[in-house]
Simulated assay, not measured.
Amino acid sequence: MRQEHTPSFKVETALNCWYDFGIGKGGNIIDLAAELYQSTDLRYLMRCIANSYPVPSAQTVASSFPQRHSAPSVEQFEVVPLEHRALVAYLQERGIPAHIAMANCKEANYSVNDKSYFAVAFENVSGGWELRNRYFKGCKGRKDISYLPWARDGPSAECAMFEGFIDYLSALTLGLISGADAIILNSVVNVNKAVPYLKDYRTINCYLDNDTAGQTALSELTAIYGPIVIDRSTLYSEFNDLNDFLVNQSFIKNTLSNENK
């Protein structure tokens, strides 16, 4: 537990997602359990959730909560080309140039309880959308991996793996994955979902986070595929993830540029 005087944990009930501004992470209930219990084992996490939130009796529910006809829901969810200046600026603050952001992301416009919202949107293989803006991190639809083959005429011999799409955009910005297919986990608990996609690659370059969850995911992949799994996190060993590394490099570059003017 952190000692704080200002609330920094937000729950978006309409999207069934949460975001912790204190650690800069968010997601669904599985992602929250992964943070609380420091594990990527989905079965273990599901047991922890079940044990922590036992199902109450109908009588308890009826007496404890006011009656409501329906839960808040996302309305008029629309995905369009990324154009909103605030969203492009948000990604630029993360070190992602506008042309890379607009070529690889979409813009989601939606409303909750008659209030309008917008976010950067990135699609997964189940048709769900990872949503990000400066204040929110969540998902619309089913949580799943994103798979991006580099060429349309067949898979590459090499695959690059990332935890989130911001890291994938960071790799594109740094020119790290030209010619390689890409898999974005969208949560380390999705490692098992990525396994069927990896069987035919000769090299799997892992750009995962430098934390317990990221290293656990790396170990799980190495146990399955052995030496073809390459840990690329050494590139940014002093940082939590690839995007932190990119932002730092961009800051240094801009500082030197301003000093030389």
Rank of each mutant, 00 (worst) to 15 (best):
V112K: 01
L208G: 10
L169K: 00
P227E: 11
N186G: 04
L42I: 15
Q59T: 13
N124E: 10
K143P: 01
D200W: 13
I228E: 09
A89M: 10
G22C: 01
I166K: 01
V195T: 05
G154F: 00
Q59V: 09
Y168F: 14
I145Q: 12
L174V: 10
E78Y: 00
S219N: 09
K25T: 14
I166S: 11
L32I: 03
L87F: 09
Q92E: 09
C17Q: 14
G95L: 04
S57Y: 08
P56N: 02
I177V: 12
F118R: 07
I224A: 02
Q249I: 07
V189P: 03
V88F: 10
E12V: 13
V112D: 04
D114P: 00
E75F: 00
N16E: 11
K25C: 06
R94E: 05
E4I: 13
P155E: 10
D167W: 00
Q59H: 13
A108I: 05
N104R: 09
V125Q: 02
V125L: 04
K193D: 14
L36M: 09
N186A: 06
D153R: 07
E78L: 01
Y168W: 07
F65S: 04
Y117S: 08
K25Q: 12
D200M: 03
G128I: 03
D20M: 01
P155G: 05
V247N: 07
P155Q: 14
I145G: 08
Y37T: 01
P72L: 09
T216D: 03
S257G: 05
Y225W: 14
L169A: 01
A213Q: 14
G214S: 03
E83Y: 12
H84D: 15
N16R: 14
N243S: 13
Y110T: 02
L242F: 11
M1F: 13
Y168E: 00
R132V: 00
Q3W: 06
N133I: 10
R2G: 10
Y19F: 15
H84L: 11
I183D: 02
V61R: 14
G26D: 09
Y236H: 13
N205I: 15
F9A: 08
M102T: 13
I228D: 00
P227V: 08
A103S: 13
F162D: 11
L172K: 05
P72Y: 04
F9G: 11
D153V: 12
Q215L: 06
N109Q: 12
Q67L: 11
L32S: 06
